[in-house]
Structures are given as structure tokens and as C-alpha cells.
Design a protein around this nucleic acid. Sequence first.
DNA 1: TCCGAAAGGCCGGTCACCATACCTTTGGCT
DNA 2: AGCCAAAGGTATGGTGACCGGCCTTTCGGA
Lengths: 243, 243
Amino acid sequence: MSDSLLRPIKGGNAFEETVQRLLQTIRLGAVGPGDRLPSERELAVRLGVSRDTLREAISALADAGFLVSRRGRYGGTFVTDDLPEHAPGLYEVTDASAAAAPSRLSPDEIADALAVRAVLELGAVRLAAARALPAEDRQRLHSALEESAGAASVDYRRLDSRLHLTIAELAGAPSLVPLVADARTRVNLLLDEIPLLARNIAHSDQQHERIVRAILAGRADEAVAAMQEHLDGTAALLTGFLT
Amino acid sequence: MSDSLLRPIKGGNAFEETVQRLLQTIRLGAVGPGDRLPSERELAVRLGVSRDTLREAISALADAGFLVSRRGRYGGTFVTDDLPEHAPGLYEVTDASAAAAPSRLSPDEIADALAVRAVLELGAVRLAAARALPAEDRQRLHSALEESAGAASVDYRRLDSRLHLTIAELAGAPSLVPLVADARTRVNLLLDEIPLLARNIAHSDQQHERIVRAILAGRADEAVAAMQEHLDGTAALLTGFLT
DNA sequence: TCCGAAAGGCCGGTCACCATACCTTTGGCT
DNA sequence: AGCCAAAGGTATGGTGACCGGCCTTTCGGA
């Protein structure tokens, strides 16, 4: 019994964590290309980390081509206009401590990641559909759907994640959002290992639309069913490719 | 959009975190009175913390009456036979950094905690019921149920949590367990603020039995429905007492 | 009776991280 | 033209946490 509770307190050092966190907000589409991050001083407070550490992280991500910093008034830290796909030269920095990161994952780990993702996203979509959404939220959901629908292959993963994350935000339970984000980050790591097929994208787009329609109409059961189908598709893909 | 992802990296210092983690495993019944914790050296590795820090945490919990250490061969750190109810003198240590901890919580925070709890536990119970459980797991579930059923008032919260946590473990997704544990810890903090009525305990016991029966029979939908009802009961209690 | 293994108890050096303060660049406003 | 605010860039001292080693206590077994 007393096993899973005695898990590690913190993952790696503060610098590492900060890099990953920033990378996550970019990869999940929470901030898009050209967007400005909060100022270093504010970000440092928000992340609960010293400005030194934050600056090291920003600097690493700038070297890797994800961020650019501009000085002076109305300066700041911005997301690069066209993002690198596979973090060039960042893994040397990132994996310095935990060695076996890029290796092949075990079937158990894959099933675990998919199960957690399903629990969280199905729960979130049910809550979102059961709520009476204000106009602004309906708008946000709609535009997230549209952006992901017309996305090119290189942007697809990011905008897809952004849509799912938006749904999680609409659930009305703020602390659910980071959990969904982490689960999705974990699944995305797996998805990065397999090819992205145009046919699958088209299929996903259809499912996305059905999910969003059901949420906006307040049909919770249908929204959950549609999401279940959607997630099953990804799960089948993953378990198929990664034996 | 880019709000909830820029959350703090780590909560308080390592010592703090370690105290809370150990307290969690005790409070949730993962280790019971008289049980022995792993050796300091092993625990320090498992928690990803230095032995110094771990020892400070153990020492604090020993002062507060939760743990006792015995030296020598076959010694170790043990959970006290009768646990303190409300951590005497531990809050002076614990809340030194984050000041406003024991204050009244806002309705939004209550709803948030309950929503996350529901998402996780409903998802877990569905997975558990959908699996073909090995004999050993069926046995563990059964004994967790029996222990919680015959529990006195002072032990009830702990053994109740233990049962729920056992269900989460049976879901077959290891990384779901810490999430459920955290959600439950958060709800328990709220429950500590309201009285515990014998009538509610009896009612919960009935619901527990129905949940466990449904899981063991593999009737997923009924298990979820029973759990939903169970959680609704707690939610009603909480929102009633804490205006 | 003695010994050794396994556990808790105890330093001293080192480094990552933090807090604070100050400097430099930039661009709008007066 | 000049000033000022807001941002990034830099430097320095303080400290909490980690590491590694060592000591002390206790018990079972040779």
C-alpha cells in the first residue's frame, strides 16, 4: 500500500523545472508564436523561483530557439515566430541530470499515461458541458476550435492541445487545469515518437467539432461519449505504433 | 489563457514538503498506527530529499506525537500507536512560511476541491470496476472495507481515506494514486472543520459496501453511480456547514 | 561471548538557489 | 531635446539543502 505516496518531492533542480514549465506553456499552445510573456520580475514571482534561475531558463530556451528577449521599454520576452520542432541542443542541457529520458517507454507507462489522461479529460469535458457557459467562454471555445481546424501539420499538436486545455478551463475547476496540462504533456511526449498522418488529423477535426457542439449545447453525455471516442483514437494509434 | 500554467514550481521548502508528505501517508491511512516506515536512508532516496532534511521532518513529527524513532538493529521509525487528532504544536512549525493557512476557505475553493476530487475518484472507480481484479487485490479491497466499517469515530476519517485510496490503486494506473491522494488530502482539510455525525458514518458505510460490491462484480456503471452518490453526500455536508 | 549488520544520530564542506541592489537599454511623452 | 518609466542585464552576499563520511546503539547468530 504505502508505495505510491512516498514519491519524490521535487523533480530535478529549479532551473530544470523552470525550463520544462516554460516549454510546457509553449508546447500546449497557452502562449503562441509572437506572444509576450510576463516580465521577468513578475514571472519569477508567479513561478515561485528567483529571477536568476528564471533568467537562466529563459536564456536556455532562447539558445534553443523558443524565445527571444528584447530590452528597453516595451521590451520583454517573446515566443519565437516559428518554433523549432524538436528542441535543437536542448536535450543536452535538459537530460544532464536524469539520463534515461529519451529512451523507449514501456507498455505499462503508455497505458498509465493514457488512463490518467482519459480520467482527467473525460471528467473535465463532462463538467464543462454541464455548466452554463458565459458568452466569453463560448467564444473562446469556438475560436480555439477554428484555429485547430485550419492548422498545418507542424502546428497541429500545439493547437490541438490548446483546444483540449481550453475545454479543461471551462470546467470551472481551476486546479483541474494543471492536471490536464501535465497529463497531456506526458501523452504528447509519446506522440512525438510516431508520425502524424493527414488522415488522422481530418478525423480528429471532425471529433473536435462534435465535442465542442455537444459542450455548447449542454449535452454532457454526448460530449463525454465524443471525447471518449476521440481519446480512443489516439490511444489506438499509440499502442499500435509503440508496441 | 496563460494563467493556470504559470503556477508555482514548488510549495515551500524541502523540509516543509517532507513533513506534509509524511503526514499525508499517515492521515490517509497508507501506514497505520504501529507500522514501521522504511529506513531513513531508503526513505530519503524515495522522497528525493537528503537524509538531513528527512531527519528534521521526522524529528518535527516526533515532537508532534505522530512518530517515534528507535535506534539499533530492528529499530526504525514507527507510527505512534494512538495518533494525535489535531497536530499539537505542529502548526507553529508548518505555517511559519505560508501565513494564512488555517483561515476560512472561500466557496470557490471548496467547489474546486470537490470537483477535482469527484473527477479523479469517479474515474478511478470506473477503471477499477472495469478491470478483472486478481485475487490479492480483491482481498485487499475487502479488508479495507471491513476495517472502515467497524471504525470508531476518531479513526473513521483515516480508514475511510484508506478505502478510497485502495480503490484508486486498483484502477491499474499508478500515477492516478498520488493525484487522488492529493485531492483527498485537500478535501480532508475541509472536513476537519465540521463535526462528524454518527448518522453520516452509518450512511457512508452503506454506500461503501455498495461501491465495493459493484467493483468486485465488475458492474462499472453501478460502481460509478454509487460513488457519485457517496461523494454528493460529502459535498452536501461541506457546502452546508461552510457557508 | 563476541561480532557484525542494520538502524538512527551527528558533523563540515560545497553549491545551487535566493534576495537585493544597481546598471543599461529602449521608446513614448512632454 | 530631454526625461522617465519599464524592461532586460549584472553583481554580491546569505543560506538552505545536499553529500559523504563517521559514530553510537541495538540485536541476532556464530
